[in-house]
Design a protein around this nucleic acid. Structure first.
Lengths: 126, 126
DNA sequence: GTGTTAATTAACACATCAGTTAATGAATAA
DNA sequence: TTATTCATTAACTGATGTGTTAATTAACAC
């Protein structure tokens, strides 16, 4: 058991860097990628990427597998599941917060509550 | 429109601190709390809490409402929805990653894949 | 053996972060 | 007006984070 206990703030903190977040996204899409292939797209040195990988590993977000001289990385599904559980556990609170506010302070809030219209940026590398 | 664009790494980064995370959790549960009441449980100074609140606000996670000399804080449901959307968008990748690995490297992984058995710590303040 | 490839660790520079106390701003209460 | 309450901003300190280059470890290829 390489991850005896996972810290939610550490998980969030590890994802709080554009390079690390895009590493995780790539690993989720591609499943397993070597450290070198992960480092290739970024304009920083390999040791810097190696440290980012260590941060993700210590947070329990990814695992390393050694194969010959290569390190293959993959996302730990269990940690992502825990992350999803956390946000879902609070969903009823944040999902209704807009309605609750509207009742208290009508018109004081934006009203674009439609689904699927995320304002979140999708390009967090570079 | 106080939040023209939200950065996912900034959102994660803001949640990557135990004090800030427990502030957000409390606001989700209680809906709206004054800055002073938010600061009270923590063993650090009020200016330090004030800065944590600013970090959360700049990340788009919370909003401030001014009422007389009080500042009331509340979670922005839209940002939490965007966070939930992000993790759900990748769910099929991380949810199946364990099975995929089991096929490639049988027995090399832990096998406690039951639902509801989170290893995540739930006490991230102090 | 020697050389190459893959990746990490070591040592260091610099930026950012998280905390402090003191000062300030702004509204309430007397 | 004066004092009190609520909260912030300013100035500073120490810790942590992120990057660099150089050195090291380890496996592969010859």
């Amino acid at each position: 058991m390489p991850e005896p206990q996972i810290s939610l703030p550490d998980v969030f903190g590890a994802l709080g860097d554009p390079i690390r977040l895009s590493i995780v996204e790539r690993l989720m899409k591609e499943g397993e990628v070597s450290a070198g292939d992960i480092a290739a797209p970024f304009p920083i040195s390999k040791p810097a990427i190696s440290r980012h990988i260590s941060v993700l590993e210590k947070a329990g977000i990814i695992e390393r597998r050694v194969d010959r001289q290569f390190r293959f990385l993959r996302v730990r599904g269990e940690t992502m599941k825990d992350l999803a559980s956390w946000i879902e556990r609070y969903r009823r609170f944040w999902e209704t917060s807009f309605d609750r506010l509207e009742k208290l302070f009508p018109g004081a809030e934006n009203d674009d509550a439609e689904q699927g219209k995320s304002k979140m940026e999708d390009d967090h590398d570079h």
